[in-house]
Simulated assay, not measured.
Amino acid sequence: MHPSLPSIPYHFSSTALGISVVASVLFSYALAKMLGFGSSNKFVVDGRTVVITGGSEGMGKAAACQLAERGANVVIVARTLQKLQESMEAIRGSAVNASKQRFHYISADLTKVEECERVISEVTEWNDGTSPDIVWCCAGYCTPGLFVNTPVQTLRDQMDTIYWTAANTAHAILKRWLAPITPSNQRPSPPKHLIFTCSTLAFVPIAGYGPYAPAKAAMRSLSDTLSQEIEIYNGSRAAKQRSRATPADVKIHTIFPMGILSPGYDNEQEIKPAITKQLEAADKPQTPREVARISIEALERGEYLITTMFVGDLMKGSALGPSPRNSWIRDTLTGWLSSLVFLQVIPGLRKQAFEWGRKNGVPSSST
């Protein structure tokens, strides 16, 4: 349900050396990461409580299973009760210590503010009066289509199911996490983690995703804003003289997958405009388990904006702007490489769209 870069002819002989140097440094950096040099786990979940919205299928379910494998207590949230019940069996079966870990599911419509508040309250009660340690927002689905051919109500529904489910959930949990407490109640506590699941379409939009991409772009903007705002509250814990402070630091993260093989992806393919399929023809969708694994490993490294394949890295590098960097060296070099690659990519996408229109004329609602 996400784009990839089209085939790019290499005729930048004058820049070949520069690209080779950048690629070599990126490879060395990646190799060091794979060998574990200078790394420590910044996303410990053993014994902690994780809430995953959209956890009944796809990436959300895969992430829930893998966190259960790491010792987490897991709560999944979705609308359909039957899917929740079926998924819960797989998640329980993934537990590393079934006698100690706990699992729960909640049916809720997260487009409604009061439902998000209910979910967090229910989880807190289930968790012996303690709010969850990690909230991962995976809820949402994609309805591709050309903007003009898409009913306005569908445009609104996409914003509700993508942006507002995440924003509502974030608002509900942050009110809990950021409530100040008195010094007598302050104890050392591991950081809390709020994770959004976005899309590389927030970096590089593709024709045919007009209903979907703007909601993902809004989610990325919310993430960047919160990454700044949250430091106000984290700073309260470092004050020399403090009467009140938040109970724990909070970390914000956002995942940017590309295509994910799932029932939702199959549904998208049935209604996706033909031009969109052409523009993203080189996209090689990943399995939910693969995307979840790569994302969790990046969270363990403490990364903020997380992509799940090299093409996604390039797309991110082209659009980082003022977003916080995971690594100044890696992200700067990727940005340089992206600036060269995208000299051809964006004109190529526009040219393909133009040629499609010249060949087929004004698109109908079925194309």
Rank of each mutant, 00 (worst) to 15 (best):
M1W: 05
H2N: 12
P3E: 02
L5Q: 06
P6H: 10
F12T: 14
S13P: 15
S14W: 11
V22N: 12
V22C: 15
S24F: 11
V25A: 13
F27V: 14
A30N: 05
L31T: 06
M34S: 13
M34N: 06
M34T: 12
L35G: 01
L35P: 08
G36Y: 02
G36E: 07
S39I: 12
S40N: 08
S40M: 09
N41R: 06
N41M: 02
K42T: 07
F43P: 14
F43Y: 13
V45H: 01
I52G: 00
G54C: 08
M59Y: 06
A62I: 02
A62R: 04
A63N: 05
A64V: 04
A68V: 03
A68C: 08
E69C: 09
N73W: 00
V75F: 00
T80Q: 06
T80M: 02
L81T: 11
K83V: 11
L84A: 00
L84I: 06
S99M: 13
Y105P: 03
T111W: 06
E115P: 09
E117S: 04
I120R: 10
I120F: 05
V123P: 04
N127S: 01
G129N: 01
S131P: 12
P132K: 03
D133Q: 06
W136F: 12
W136K: 09
C137V: 07
C138Y: 05
G140D: 01
P144K: 09
L146A: 11
F147S: 12
T150W: 06
T154R: 07
D157V: 14
Q158A: 13
M159C: 15
T161F: 08
T161K: 13
W164K: 14
W164C: 09
A167P: 05
N168M: 11
I173S: 00
R176S: 11
R176V: 07
A179C: 11
S189W: 03
P190T: 12
K192P: 00
F196E: 03
F196G: 02
S199W: 02
S199V: 08
A202N: 01
A202I: 04
A202P: 00
V204G: 00
Y209N: 07
S221H: 09
T225D: 01
N234G: 08
N234E: 09
S236R: 06
S236Y: 01
K240F: 07
Q241W: 11
S243W: 11
A248G: 08
V250I: 15
I252P: 04
H253Q: 14
I255V: 15
G259F: 09
I260S: 02
P273S: 05
T276H: 08
Q278H: 10
A282T: 15
D283F: 03
D283V: 15
K284P: 00
K284L: 07
K284T: 11
P285C: 05
P288E: 08
R289F: 08
V291I: 14
A292R: 12
I294R: 15
S295P: 04
I296P: 07
I296R: 02
E297P: 10
L299G: 12
R301C: 10
E303L: 10
L305M: 15
I306V: 15
D313G: 04
L314N: 09
G317S: 05
A319I: 05
G321F: 01
N326I: 04
N326E: 03
S327G: 04
D331Q: 07
L333S: 07
W336L: 14
V345H: 01
I346C: 03
F354T: 12
N360K: 10
N360A: 04
S365V: 15
S365F: 13
